[in-house]
């Protein structure tokens, strides 16, 4: 199989480094353009198994201050599962009190990743 080069923008931090990832026979052989180690990791992962953090909100009952609690995946999940995660959260409601880091939904979509609260309520 021929060598393939893909241009990416690193999303790890606001620098937004332009990465060139070289793939040969399905293997990443080089990542260029990154200014840090995280960029290389991102470059490798993005062409093989892209992942994202998902952030959204769920309604909260019994809170004096909030109608909604913001939540996130505790770590990144496979990019193709973003909408599955949203669907899994569609009917989730939580009860106050909520602390940051509280698990709102465990092991979302079988990813092994929890949905955790990012706000107090």
């Amino acid at each position: 199989m021929a060598e393939e080069r893909r241009e990416l923008t690193c999303i790890n931090c606001p620098l937004g480094c332009l990465l060139t990832v070289t793939i040969s026979n399905g293997e990443v052989v080089a990542v260029e353009g990154n200014t840090c180690k995280r960029g290389e990791v991102y470059g490798r992962k993005e062409v093989t198994n892209p992942t994202r953090i998902v952030t959204t909100t769920v309604p909260v009952d019994g809170s004096a201050t909030e109608r909604m609690v913001s939540v996130k995946t505790a770590s990144d999940i496979p990019k193709p599962l973003i909408f599955d995660v949203m669907a899994a959260l569609a009917d989730v409601r939580v009860k106050a009190p909520v602390a940051v880091g509280d698990v709102v939904l465990a092991n979302v979509c079988g990813t092994g990743v929890d949905i955790v609260a990012t706000k107090e309520a």
Partner: peptide, 19 residues
């Protein structure tokens, strides 16, 4: 701003706005 990406410089980790 419930999305993540805050705090990389300050806390060396990626936080959401509320966090």
């Amino acid at each position: 701003c419930i999305h993540n990406g805050f705090g990389l410089h300050t806390f060396k980790e990626e936080l959401t706005g509320p966090e």
